[in-house]
Amino acid sequence: MKKTIFITVILSALLLGCKDNKNTNENTNGTEKINSVPKQNTKKINVQTTAMNNAWVNEIKLDDGSKWQANLETTQGVEKMLDLIKSSNLKTLEDYHSLASKLNEEKNFIVKECTMKGASHDNLHIFLVPLIEKIEDLSNTSALGQATMLTYRIEENLKGYYNYFQ
């Protein structure tokens, strides 16, 4: 219960705490709305949720065909998360939950150190929101197969960062 409350607080801070975050934000491609994150049912995880797919790639935009300039801390955080996944010896559900905790710490670092503004910041949110959902689902899953799939989807999400940010 404490984890769920903590994750909800962090997610709320991410979505509401950014200085330039408004319901409608201008970017180079016109007006774009940032949607709020749907509440997750932490008792039972539905494998069809947005956390299990990478639909965010249909929403994210490039900067006039170029990658967005990200702050160093964001890129370092993504690299650390990928390293955590690669270096983890995942055999038990406890291993996956431990990985989720470590990934959550790195995600919190990215959110805390965020200095991006404007359209690059808005597109970072498009990348981060499903990543946050996947990490939360990984920490709450009770099935080993689902944990394996979520970890794979988290890794896909993280690798996708480099298609849109530099």
Rank of each mutant, 00 (worst) to 15 (best):
Y161I: 03
I5F: 15
N25C: 10
A70C: 03
K61F: 04
V129A: 02
A55L: 05
A147L: 06
V9G: 05
K102P: 08
I85W: 06
V57S: 04
E105N: 12
E106P: 06
I34Y: 05
N104F: 09
L90Y: 06
C18N: 06
T115W: 07
F109N: 13
A13R: 14
N89F: 10
Q48I: 08
Q76A: 13
A51S: 10
A119W: 05
T148P: 00
G77Y: 07
G30S: 06
A55H: 07
Q40R: 12
D137M: 14
T31D: 14
T42L: 08
G160R: 00
H125W: 04
K112D: 12
Q69K: 11
S36V: 12
L131G: 02
Y96W: 11
N21G: 07
F165S: 00
L11H: 09
E94L: 13
T24D: 13
Q48Y: 05
Y161V: 02
G77T: 03
E156A: 06
V37K: 02
S98M: 07
N23G: 11
W68S: 03
L62C: 03
E94V: 15
S87M: 14
G65Y: 12
N108R: 14
N163G: 06
K19E: 03
M149D: 10
S12A: 15
E136G: 05
S88R: 04
L82S: 07
I126S: 08
G17P: 13
E155P: 04
T75E: 08
A51N: 03
K61W: 04
D83C: 12
V129G: 00
N163A: 06
G145E: 15
K39G: 04
D64R: 09
K91C: 05
K159A: 09
K91A: 11
T92H: 13
C18Q: 11
H121K: 08
K44R: 07
I154S: 02
S142E: 15
N58Q: 15
D137N: 15
E106I: 11
L138Y: 02
I7M: 07
A100F: 00
N123H: 03
Q146T: 11
Q146N: 12
D64E: 09
M116N: 02
D63E: 13
S12G: 14
A147K: 02
K44T: 10
Y164P: 00
S66H: 10
E26I: 07
E26R: 11
E133M: 09
G145P: 03
S88L: 04
A143W: 10
I135Q: 00
E113K: 15
N46S: 10
N35K: 10
F109W: 14
S36H: 08
T8S: 12
K39V: 13
K22I: 05
T74S: 10
E156D: 08
A55E: 09
